[in-house]
Simulated assay, not measured.
Amino acid sequence: MQASLVTAMRWSWLLGVALLAPAALPAGGADRRLPEVRRRDGGGPLISGSHDLLHASPRVNAPSLRRLDLGTPLRVLRSWRCENGEEWLQVEVASTVGIDHPGAVQRGWMHG
């Protein structure tokens, strides 16, 4: 009787551990990758230079959508590198600029 009670307790303990231990692990096992480091913000908006144009797509021969005034604050949405190595930035004009021209294009591509 004593041996069967000890055996039943061992199996109960083993079953309990087997049922509870996987709940503490993520699906597929532990994640061994380092946490992702987010890009730090440069501290302010990008400012346009003189004669900058917003293009419809990241190509030199793409139609121009808008000419930006010198010092227009821009927010970079993403960057694109063409096969020939040219870098383009998709930008958005700051929301406070152009309130007096509500129909003006606010997003476009700039040659980097």
Rank of each mutant, 00 (worst) to 15 (best):
M1C: 12
A3M: 10
A3R: 15
L5H: 12
L5T: 12
V6P: 02
V6L: 12
M9A: 15
M9K: 13
M9Q: 15
M9L: 14
R10H: 10
W11F: 13
W13E: 13
L15P: 01
A18P: 05
L19G: 10
L19D: 08
P22V: 00
A24I: 10
L25D: 03
P26R: 07
G28S: 05
G28P: 10
G29A: 06
A30K: 02
D31Y: 09
D31C: 00
V37Y: 05
V37N: 03
R38D: 05
R39D: 04
D41K: 03
G42A: 09
G44V: 08
G44W: 02
P45L: 11
P45F: 03
S48K: 01
S48G: 02
G49T: 03
G49D: 11
D52T: 08
D52C: 06
L53R: 12
L53Q: 12
L53P: 04
H55W: 04
A56S: 14
S57T: 13
R59P: 01
N61Y: 04
A62R: 04
P63M: 08
R66H: 07
R66K: 05
R66N: 09
R67M: 06
R67H: 08
R67E: 14
L68N: 02
L68P: 05
L74K: 09
L74H: 03
R75Q: 12
R75N: 01
L77T: 09
R78H: 08
R78P: 00
R78F: 00
W80G: 01
W80N: 08
W80R: 13
E83T: 02
N84A: 09
G85K: 03
E86H: 14
E86I: 10
E87F: 06
E87N: 05
W88P: 10
L89Y: 04
V91P: 02
V93L: 00
S95T: 06
V97Y: 03
G98I: 02
G98T: 04
I99K: 11
I99N: 14
H101Q: 11
P102Q: 02
P102L: 01
G103I: 00
G103W: 07
G103S: 11
V105Q: 13
V105F: 01
Q106K: 15
Q106R: 15
Q106F: 09
R107K: 12
G108A: 09
G108K: 08
